[in-house]
């Protein structure tokens, strides 16, 4: 059963590596941001599977922090610039 969890984590890591290509080449910043969001989600999945396979429950908390920081990053990215137009 642990083998299966590690295998699934391996598959998710492969999709993460694919998403990295979109972060690197993505034509617009919005592309990069949403690819980074997908990376965060697959990172959460990997952490959950690792926590179950290796028997380290503290990794569930790390997954929780991953979810939190995805929110923070999207908020920082889509923040409207209030002082736009007033120069630097």
């Amino acid at each position: 059963m642990d083998e299966f969890y590690i295998g699934a984590a391996l598959l998710l890591l492969l999709t993460m590596a694919g998403g990295l290509v979109r972060v690197a080449v993505g034509p617009s910043p919005a592309d990069r941001m949403m690819a980074a969001q997908l990376l965060g989600s697959s990172g959460i999945g990997i952490l959950l599977l690792l926590a179950a396979a290796l028997g380290i429950p503290a990794l569930f908390d790390v997954a929780l922090i991953f979810a939190l920081l995805a929110v923070i990053n999207v908020a920082a990215f889509t923040r409207r610039r209030v002082d736009e137009g007033s120069g630097a």
């Binding site: 503290a58 790390v62 939190l68 920081l69 923070i72 990053n73 920082a76």
Partner: peptide, 14 residues
Amino acid sequence: ALAEAAVGAGLGGA
């Protein structure tokens, strides 16, 4: 890992 995720990507990234 917890500190790395919270400080590195969360606060530092923003």
